[in-house]
C-alpha cells in the first residue's frame, strides 16, 4: 500500500458512497447534489491517477455543466422539494434492480480484478502520459475523431432543438384534433 493507494481508497470511498446516496436518497434535489459530490470526487480520483487534464475537464463539463443541466431539468419538470415517497419504483423492481446491479459489479470485478492484479504504475516521477502528450495525441493521431466530435456536438444541439420544436407542433395538432372531437 503506497500513499497514493491510501489516498485513492479514501477518494474512491467518497465517490462510491455519494453515488450510492445519489441513487437511494428520497429527495429529488439531493439526488442531483449527491451526484455532484460523486462526480467531483471522481475528478479527484483522476488527479490521484495522474491525469490532471481529465480531472479538470471532468470538473468543468460534468460538475459545471451537466449537473447544472440536470438541476434545471428537475426544476422545469416541477420536481417536488423534500422527501418524496413516489420517487422510487415498486419494491420488487428495486430488489431486482439491486440484484442486477450487484451482478454487474460482480461480473465486472471478476473480469477486471484478475486483469489488473499486481499491476502497478509509477506516477511519482511525472505521469507517462502528461498533458503535453495528450495534446500531441489529440491534435495528431486523434485529430479526425476530434473534429467529428465537434460536428456531433452541433448535431446534438440542433437535434435537441428540433425534437422540442417537432413534438411541440404535433402536440398542438393533437390538442386541436381532440378539441374538434370534443366539440
Amino acid at each position: 500500500m503506497t500513499t497514493r493507494d491510501i489516498v485513492f481508497a479514501a477518494v474512491g470511498a467518497i465517490t462510491a458512497l455519494s453515488a450510492l446516496l445519489s441513487v437511494t436518497t428520497k429527495h429529488v434535489v439531493h439526488s442531483a447534489l449527491w451526484l455532484l459530490v460523486s462526480l467531483g470526487s471522481l475528478a479527484g480520483c483522476y488527479l490521484v491517477l495522474g491525469q490532471e487534464l481529465v480531472g479538470l475537464v471532468q470538473l468543468l463539463v460534468y460538475v459545471g455543466a451537466i449537473v447544472v443541466l440536470v438541476l434545471f431539468a428537475l426544476m422545469l419538470t416541477r420536481a417536488p422539494i423534500g422527501p418524496h415517497a413516489e420517487i422510487d419504483t415498486p419494491a420488487w423492481q428495486r430488489v431486482v434492480g439491486a440484484l442486477l446491479g450487484a451482478a454487474t459489479t460482480v461480473l465486472l470485478a471478476a473480469l477486471l480484478l484478475p486483469l489488473f492484479s499486481g499491476v502497478t504504475v509509477e506516477l511519482d516521477g511525472g505521469a507517462p502520459g502528461g498533458t503535453p502528450a495528450i495534446a500531441q495525441a489529440v491534435f495528431g493521431t486523434w485529430v479526425w475523431p476530434f473534429e467529428l466530435l465537434s460536428v456531433l456536438l452541433l448535431v446534438a444541439l440542433i437535434g435537441a432543438f428540433a425534437v422540442s420544436r417537432l413534438v411541440l407542433r404535433s402536440e398542438d395538432e393533437t390538442v386541436t384534433a381532440r378539441g374538434e372531437v370534443r366539440r
Binding site: Q93, V96, L100, A103, L107
Partner: peptide, 20 residues
C-alpha cells in the same frame, strides 16, 4: 417504461454473463 428498462438490463446482464 420502467419494466422495459428492467427487462432490457436483465437481458444485457444475462448476455454479458453468458459471453464471459
Amino acid at each position: 417504461p420502467s419494466l422495459s428498462l428492467l427487462a432490457l438490463l436483465a437481458g444485457v446482464v444475462v448476455i454479458a454473463v453468458l459471453g464471459v
